[in-house]
């Protein structure tokens, strides 16, 4: 899942070298935290969170297929 979030984020931002993704297990949930360059925050969130919603729906679909419970957070 980590690689998937990285791939998507890198394709959207102006500073792909500043894309960082970490994973942490919290009980049954795998929490994935994405952080990007300050100037790229808007690019991974979008107007009314449209981009973030799209990333989540793709990541959650992939996770559910592997019977994983995942949550994606975007660090500020």
């Amino acid at each position: 899942m980590k690689e998937l979030v990285e791939t998507i984020a890198r394709a959207l931002v102006d500073h792909p070298e500043h894309v960082n993704v970490s994973e942490e297990q919290q009980r049954e949930t795998r929490v994935i935290t994405l952080s990007v360059h300050k100037e790229d925050m808007g690019k991974v969130i979008g107007k009314q969170g449209k981009v973030a919603t799209a990333i989540r729906s793709v990541v959650y679909a992939a996770a559910s297929q592997q019977h994983q419970h995942v949550r994606l957070e975007i660090a500020d």
Binding site: A11, L12, K50, V51, T53, A54, S57, V58, A61
Partner: peptide, 13 residues
Amino acid sequence: KTLDSLEYLVNLA
């Protein structure tokens, strides 16, 4: 929903 999200991201990229 997933197909639409993928489509949106592909167009952004």
